[in-house]
């Protein structure tokens, strides 16, 4: 299997290696796959090439810095990197610090349930397949919404995507986390 075809679970292992041992080889693998995509996402969102490169490097450095806070039972690696890129995009392009929800990290002693991690990664794979199976017009609308091409009132949340199951999975992981925190 080449570096380009890793599954979500394998990406999650690379992030764990960065968190545990500051593994630069794992970081380089993550970088080769995600950095060009993050840069493309930023350019689609209106940044020129130079700003997108600058912002992307910042996003990837943030990933390194936050690797120990990544929770694979609540987000695939692609989802997690998307949220970092989106927040930095708003910080830079709109020039304000984006308000983010209070984080709920696992404590150093507690770790997410491996079954939760697998279940969420499977749901994420299904979601990606469902997006690819959408009619071209609808798929483009969803992409444009996430590039910031649509205003809030143009966004139709009825995507026809299987978001109910993914929500239930994440809800379960949150319940376990809340339980571990008390």
């Amino acid at each position: 299997m080449t570096a380009e075809q890793k599954t979500d679970v394998q990406w999650a292992d690379r992030i764990a290696a960065i968190a545990r041992t500051q593994d630069q080889t794992a970081f380089a693998e993550v970088f080769r796959h995600f950095a060009p995509r993050v840069k493309a996402f930023l350019m689609k969102s209106g940044a020129d090439s130079a700003l997108a490169e600058e912002c992307m490097q910042d996003v990837m450095a943030t990933l390194w810095n936050k690797a120990h806070l990544y929770d694979p039972s609540r987000a695939a690696v692609s989802t997690w990197i998307f949220t970092i890129a989106r927040n930095r995009k708003i910080d830079l392009l709109r020039r304000y610090a984006r308000p983010e929800p209070e984080d709920l990290p696992w404590g150093p002693e507690d770790v997410p349930d491996q079954a939760d991690v697998l279940a969420l990664q499977q749901e994420t794979t299904k979601l990606a397949a469902a997006i690819n199976a959408l009619p071209e017009k609808q798929r483009q609308l969803i992409e444009r919404a996430y590039f910031g091409d649509l205003t809030h009132s143009e966004i139709a949340a009825e995507t026809g995507l299987p978001l109910g199951t993914i929500k239930s999975r994440i809800r379960l992981a949150l319940d376990r986390l809340r339980h571990a925190m008390t």
Binding site: R32, A75, T124, I131, Y146, R171
Partner: peptide, 29 residues
Amino acid sequence: ARARLAGFEAVGGAVLDDMDGAKLAEDSL
């Protein structure tokens, strides 16, 4: 709301993962 938001962010992650990558600067890494 946190779980529903995470679902919509997963859509963003899938869109990101599906993109054709842009060319990076030579010394990017």
